[in-house]
């Protein structure tokens, strides 16, 4: 089903990235992130290409940028750290306008911000074009251990259920006059969290019983999905190749 933009990571569409099989996208994203991270600093050209590639991937999704920006906020703490680096790093100083900053710190800040931004842009392009179901099946196709796939699948399925339970507990607390206003409210919040854990654990037991009741013996069945052809794999590898080739060219010259 199509999720409403802004509420869920995935957004319906019919772009090239939407159509690319999930397992090819996972491998492509991983390769792109690793290649970008491996670019030696300062890597002006390769990292610029990596960021432009990230922007290009997001543009390819066809999703409006206003839905993409909120998903990029996860990077803000890293950008703040990068912004501080030129001022706290040691080594030779240089002038940056009216400020004196560390040369090494400035280069590290650029590398950190560029690598982080490129990877987050690519990850966002992946997330908005891949349904949770496709991600789970894609990981199965990549032979990720069943237990890990199961944990991910249950997390996707039950996050909303546990969230609802948490909301009901909050309403019940507040309906009886509770306000989390000081440290003294922490024990109450702790006990609520404990109760939520116990309830979730019990639900886990009930889910297990219902799985076993339908013949589950420890292995998740794999359902048919689109297979990835040579063209799909080539498309998925393209972003990482672009960065790698630019880095090789930069190093050679």
């Amino acid at each position: 089903m199509g999720a409403r933009p802004g509420l869920h990571l995935h957004i319906d569409g019919d772009s090239v990235l939407h159509r690319l099989p999930a397992h090819a996208k996972v491998v492509g994203l991983l390769a792109f992130a690793l290649t970008t991270v491996a670019v030696p600093a300062p890597g002006w050209w390769p990292l610029t290409v990596a960021m432009l590639t990230g922007c290009g991937l997001v543009a390819l999704t066809g999703v409006a940028w206003r839905y993409v920006w909120p998903r990029l906020l996860i990077e803000v703490p890293f950008l703040l750290f990068a912004a501080v680096l030129p001022f706290v790093a040691s080594g030779p100083r240089m002038a940056l306008g009216p400020l004196q900053v560390s040369e090494v710190g400035l280069l590290s800040a650029w590398a950190l911000a560029a690598k982080g931004t490129a990877a987050v842009l690519a990850a966002t392009a992946f997330a908005v074009t891949t349904t949770p179901r496709d991600l789970v099946v894609g990981l199965q196709r990549l032979h990720v251990p069943d237990t890990l796939v199961g944990i991910l699948s249950f997390m996707v399925r039950y996050a909303a259920v546990v969230g609802d339970e948490m909301r009901r507990m909050r309403i019940a607390r507040e309906s009886r006059g509770f306000r989390a206003a000081s440290l003294r409210s922490w024990p109450t919040l702790g006990r609520t969290l404990g109760a939520l854990f116990v309830r979730s654990f019990e639900r886990g037991e009930r889910v297990h019983v219902s799985m076993v009741s339908r013949g589950w013996t420890g292995t998740f069945p794999t359902f048919a999905t689109a297979t990835a052809g040579l063209v799909d794999w080539a498309c998925a590898a393209l972003p990482a190749l672009l960065v790698a080739l630019t880095a090789a060219w930069a190093l050679a010259s």
């Binding site: 179901r133 699948s153 639900r203 889910v207 219902s210 009741s213 013949g215 069945p221």
Partner: peptide
């Protein structure tokens, strides 16, 4: 013996309805 449990959230654990219904016969 097909048991339908009291809370559907305990019974429906797959990402989509289709996968959930297919879970039993696939097993």
């Amino acid at each position: 013996v097909g048991i339908v449990f009291q809370d559907p959230d305990d019974q429906l654990f797959m990402p989509t309805v289709r996968d959930d219904v297919a879970f039993g016969p696939a097993n």
